Simulated scan of single mutants.
Amino acid sequence: MDNNNDPIREFETERENRIAGYGKLDAWKGLSTDWMQSAFAEKYMYNFAWGGRPIIQLPSDMVAFQEVVWAAKPDLIIETGIAHGGSLILSASLLAMLDYCDAVATGGVVDPKTAKRRVLGIDIDIRAHNKAAIEAHPLSSKIDMFEGSSIEQPMIERVHDYAKDYERVLVCLDSNHTHDHVLAELNAYADLATKDSYCLVFDTVIEDLPADTFPDRPWAPGNNAKTAVHEFLKSHPEFAIDQEINQKLLISAAPDGWLKRIG
């Protein structure tokens, strides 16, 4: 069946062609960069919540993340960086949706106590009030949290041991955004992302913003998540930037950070 007889595929083809053309729209991309600079200055991404918990993300990235989770259908999502826990709740809610869809497809019923899909969050400092709020959330049965440095060997081994029984794994890196730290996290955890799933690296946008955007932080242009991604990709051909997501968002904290495992 060609596109003329398949309206769904025709729509998808039009979308793909439109997105592919965005890469040539330099003026629009420049506006997006200017907007992002103002968004950081005004703490725009601190304004949102998911499932009642603050989530420090852009709405556009949340929507794209939903698309990635739906496509990859992971059994486990590993996240470095917890903060207020909104991202953990987002991941848990998407996994709960996958559980429900599986149950509908098989004529069964979801039992939250036995559903296998889970979220693992890692943070060097899980503040007591955030931990209590996450543990009190209705989706807490799908969430585990490890406290400690994500790049120290005991934690790396602990996470790998936790992940060994899962068939489809998705990884999100969103903690310390310096080059060395992100590269260490990529080397520690990217290999856990299974084929056709993703290792997502957030705050790569730091490379594209003026040097004075983050005066009180150790990261800056030349020393950030994006520089780590490109260093990592030099020796890891099993990953590639998902260019469709990369190009279509325009407003994103993770340009070049949507890494799909292709091998």
Rank of each mutant, 00 (worst) to 15 (best):
E14C: 06
D61T: 11
I19T: 14
Y189D: 01
I78C: 09
P54E: 02
W28A: 13
Q57A: 06
G30R: 14
V109Q: 10
C172W: 12
E10K: 14
G23S: 09
A105V: 01
G148Q: 01
I8P: 02
D2V: 03
H129T: 07
D180V: 07
L183Q: 10
K116L: 08
Y162A: 06
D34G: 07
E207H: 14
A105E: 09
H160R: 15
I134Y: 06
P255L: 14
R168L: 00
K24M: 08
L139V: 03
H179W: 04
D26C: 02
S150N: 05
F232C: 10
K113C: 04
P74M: 09
V109E: 04
D34K: 12
S197G: 06
A27G: 05
Q37C: 06
D242G: 03
S175E: 00
F239N: 02
D191N: 12
D75C: 03
W50D: 04
E167I: 01
N246K: 11
F232L: 06
D34A: 15
A132V: 12
L173M: 11
K113G: 11
V104T: 07
S60A: 13
S252A: 04
E167Q: 13
N4E: 09
G21F: 07
A220S: 13
Y189W: 01
M1Q: 13
H181V: 14
V171M: 12
A20V: 00
H181W: 08
A253E: 10
F146Q: 06
V119L: 15
G108V: 11
S38K: 15
H230S: 12
H236G: 10
N224R: 01
W219V: 03
Y44E: 09
S140P: 03
M1G: 13
W219T: 03
W28K: 10
L139Q: 06
I122H: 05
D203H: 09
R118K: 15
P138K: 08
S91R: 07
I124G: 04
D216T: 13
I19E: 12
F11Y: 08
A41P: 02
V229C: 15
V68Y: 09
K131I: 01
H179P: 00
G257T: 10
Y189E: 11
R158V: 05
E157M: 08
I55Q: 01
V169L: 02
H137S: 05
K142C: 04
M36D: 03
K113R: 15
C199S: 11
K113I: 06
I55W: 02
R18H: 12
K226Q: 12
A92E: 05
A225N: 09
N224A: 09
S38C: 05
P138I: 02
K164G: 00
N17A: 06
S150P: 00
E147P: 00
P74H: 04
A41M: 00
G222C: 04
Q243K: 15
L233W: 03
G52R: 12
W28P: 00
N224V: 08
L183W: 05
S91E: 12
E157A: 13
S235P: 00
R127L: 09
K248F: 11
K73E: 13
